[in-house]
Write a protein that binds this DNA or RNA. Structure first.
Lengths: 179, 179
DNA sequence: GTCTATAGGCTGATAGAC
DNA sequence: GTCTATCAGCCTATAGAC
């Protein structure tokens, strides 16, 4: 059973190249050459280049939707811990996908299909800020959200080492009197 | 004295377009059209497209070199506060340039001319970590470095509001028993 | 499902006139 | 210093054979 579906192989190779060279820095030719098929075959399985990227990030996007839904049911007392641990687990589980999302966000964000992502990150920020409306709390929340994501993207340590360190720094930064 | 040097106008327009659409998302044609000159004129003033970007980020790079040199003379007791305040002042002063640097870093970092930047960020991380060799301290330092930069890039608030909030969250996260 | 061939457009960069 | 004209190369995407 060594047979690998071409479609899956395209996704595997595309994830690797997009991560290494960026979305714009990777051409259909690059992917096709590495897969060992033609560009036309790529575009038989995916309507456009963008569709490859969207297929890659879809599981992570779905997980984020689930997390935000779960946080909606958490009371104010537990919201920060739940948001912190939920987000850290999510980005460590989908490190590659987070890398891709941050790569294309500046350009894709203005497109309608990515616009809904904005509401999700707003909900996450509210959770990190303990549902406070104080700008200082929201800025702190953004620092931690961006910082945790950047570590998940760049750091080479494994998640077993990163997870407790990330939770510890987020709790110190966001939860008063807890260090 | 309304005469503006073409070279300066190119830099002004390029900064705006690179920030909005990314370096790869902005062509020489786009810049030339906005400036109101030809692509050939762009390439008379700058040898390559890359040279425009390098000219834009040079002041920020020089400031980072200065900051790292200054931190080398600070003792262990004061290093975290000095690194935190120095970095926050720097990214707030050069927000647009920080945006550009983070945009191109994934691809440019492997090139030799950007390799020296690595030593600078290593020194900054050491400062944020209070020169500790504990991985948890270095991870926390990276979270704050990345998080502060991401806020400087994305947040629309002005630096008068951001500065104290950023310093406060960094101190809580990095300096034990200070909140 | 996969291929070859190619369309049609954009890219950074150069040549040479003024 | 600035221009027009142009190059060679790359890009995504399509057409049509097998």
């Amino acid at each position: 059973m060594v047979r690998i579906r071409t479609r899956d192989e395209i996704l595997r190779v595309a994830a690797e190249l997009f991560t290494r060279y960026g979305f714009k820095g990777t051409s259909l030719h690059d992917i096709a050459a590495e897969v060992g098929c033609s560009k036309a075959t790529l575009l038989y399985h995916f309507a456009h280049k963008d569709a490859i990227l969207l297929a890659l990030v879809e599981p992570a996007r779905q997980s984020l939707i689930d997390l935000v839904a779960r946080l909606a049911g958490v009371d104010d007392k537990g919201i920060r811990v739940a948001a912190i641990e939920g987000f850290i687990d999510l980005v460590l589980r989908y490190r590659r996908e987070v890398t891709l999302i941050y790569d294309v966000t500046p350009q894709f964000m203005q497109e309608p299909r990515f616009a809904a992502m904005r509401e999700l990150t707003d909900a996450l920020r509210a959770g990190f800020a303990g549902r406070s409306s104080d700008p200082a709390d929201q800025i702190a929340a953004d620092v931690l959200l961006g910082g945790i994501a950047s570590v998940a993207i760049d750091d080479k340590r494994d998640e077993v080492e990163l997870r407790p360190a990330l939770i510890a720094v987020a709790r110190r930064a966001l939860i008063p009197g807890k260090d």
